[in-house]
Simulated assay, not measured.
Amino acid sequence: MLKLNTDSDESVNAFVRELYTRVDTLDVLVNNAGYMVTGVAEETPVEMGRQQFETNFWGTVRLTNALLPRFRAQKNGKIITVSSIVGLIGPPNLAYYTASKHAVQGYFKSLRFELEQFNISVSMVEPTWFKTDLAHNSALAHGNKISDYELYRKKAAAATQKGIDEAEFESAILKSVKTA
């Protein structure tokens, strides 16, 4: 295991240097760093949205770009990026998360065309969310509550209890590694 904070250029560069002391060939990159900010758009502070993009979008791009020179030199590799079905459908209570995942999808859809000339495949896994407690990443945790949105909050809270489990996710990633 190597330490990595995708929000930091310094951390990504240190990670890449250490990685290359341990491996000669880079076969697969699975971009899975991220988290979910929950909250009705109007209630969610813009700064929370900026941080959502810093991790989910820019962090993913930062790490991918740091590893692309090795993939290109090898003229081979696979990049599998975890996005979310939410990036396609835009449910209530997840505006910034949806926007960050939509950005990830657009970026990697374009990147796949650029990299095919180097025999580097780019694919995406778009699961629903995992069963988790999201309260610590909630706009409400920051004291912003507009009562008019209470119905949406209740529906969103109920929906987050219906996520996928780790085994389903692991299976999708392994399938992508084997086929991409």
Results as ranks from 00 to 15, higher is better:
A33D: 12
F108D: 04
K178M: 09
T60L: 14
F57Q: 07
F130Q: 11
T44F: 13
E54R: 11
N93Q: 13
Y107V: 04
M124Y: 00
T179V: 15
L88K: 15
P92Q: 07
K3V: 10
K155N: 10
L26K: 10
S100Q: 07
V82K: 03
T25F: 12
S110I: 05
S100G: 08
Q117I: 13
S171L: 13
K175S: 13
F71C: 01
G49T: 07
W58Q: 04
L68T: 06
T38C: 14
S110N: 15
A180Q: 09
I89C: 10
F108S: 03
R72N: 01
V46E: 09
L140P: 01
E126M: 13
T55L: 12
P91C: 08
T132L: 04
A167M: 09
G59Q: 06
T44A: 07
T64D: 03
S123R: 02
H142W: 07
V12T: 07
Q117M: 09
Q52C: 12
K178A: 15
I173E: 05
L67I: 02
E43K: 12
R112M: 12
Q52P: 02
T25N: 13
S11G: 05
A156P: 00
N93C: 12
G106W: 05
V16A: 13
T55C: 08
A159P: 00
A73R: 11
Y97V: 05
A180D: 08
E114T: 08
G34H: 11
T81N: 05
E42K: 15
G34I: 06
F108Y: 14
F15P: 04
N13T: 02
I164N: 01
K162I: 07
S100D: 11
V37G: 08
S84G: 06
N56A: 03
P92S: 10
P45T: 09
A41T: 10
Y20G: 03
T81M: 00
G87E: 03
Q161E: 15
D133N: 14
R50A: 07
I89E: 08
P91T: 02
W129E: 05
H102T: 13
T128H: 13
G106H: 07
S123I: 04
D7G: 01
T25E: 13
Y35V: 05
S83D: 08
E10P: 00
I173W: 12
R22A: 10
R50H: 11
G34W: 12
L19H: 04
M36K: 07
T64W: 02
A167C: 02
G106A: 11
F169R: 11
S138P: 03
K145G: 00
Q74L: 05
T64M: 03
Y107D: 05
A157C: 00
T132D: 07
I164K: 01
D165A: 03
V86W: 03
E54M: 09
E116Y: 02
R50Y: 12
V37H: 04
V122S: 03
N32P: 06
R72Q: 10
D27A: 08
K162L: 12
E116N: 12
K101Q: 12
G49E: 09
N56Q: 09
L151E: 14
V28E: 07
L115D: 04
M124T: 14
E47P: 01
Q161H: 06
